[in-house]
């Protein structure tokens, strides 16, 4: 089970962001979006990421845009980065990716 903590305008997703967790995470993310003008989703602790997880993030990003709010994805973990690269959707999310990567590598090291 993933753990995710919410501190003010930041949601940290830990562990899986996959078909097994998307239902639960969807509710959390929507609640987060509704209560915050700007929401940061920290993905640094995501160690499994699949198509369902990606789909959820896409829907959230679009949902934020529709609500005129900002959803920022930060600290993309390697799992997230790989799949994002595969999907060709990096530009869709528009979040800076490279800047967080060293941090990732640091953690790994």
């Amino acid at each position: 089970m993933p753990k995710n903590t919410k501190e003010n305008n930041r949601i940290i997703i830990e562990g899986e962001l996959t078909i097994y967790t998307v239902s639960e995470l969807k509710d959390k993310l929507i609640a987060g979006l509704l209560t915050n003008e700007e929401l940061e989703v920290d993905l640094s602790a995501v160690d499994e990421f699949d198509g369902a997880g990606l789909q959820l993030l896409i829907a959230m990003k679009q949902g934020a845009k529709a609500l005129n709010r900002t959803l920022r994805l930060t600290g993309h973990s390697q799992a997230v980065l790989t799949l994002l690269a595969l999907s060709g959707l990096e530009s869709f999310f528009g979040d800076p990716l490279l800047s967080v990567q060293p941090k990732n590598e640091e953690e790994m090291a």
């Binding site: 959230m60 529709a66 060709g88």
Partner: peptide
């Protein structure tokens, strides 16, 4: 060579059943 993920069919965040695939 090139892969484009089609996300047009994904419903809006509220209506999305995250376990259904729209990709």
């Amino acid at each position: 060579v090139e892969l484009v993920t089609i996300i047009d069919a994904i419903p809006s965040a509220e209506d999305l059943d995250p376990e259904s695939c729209h990709l």
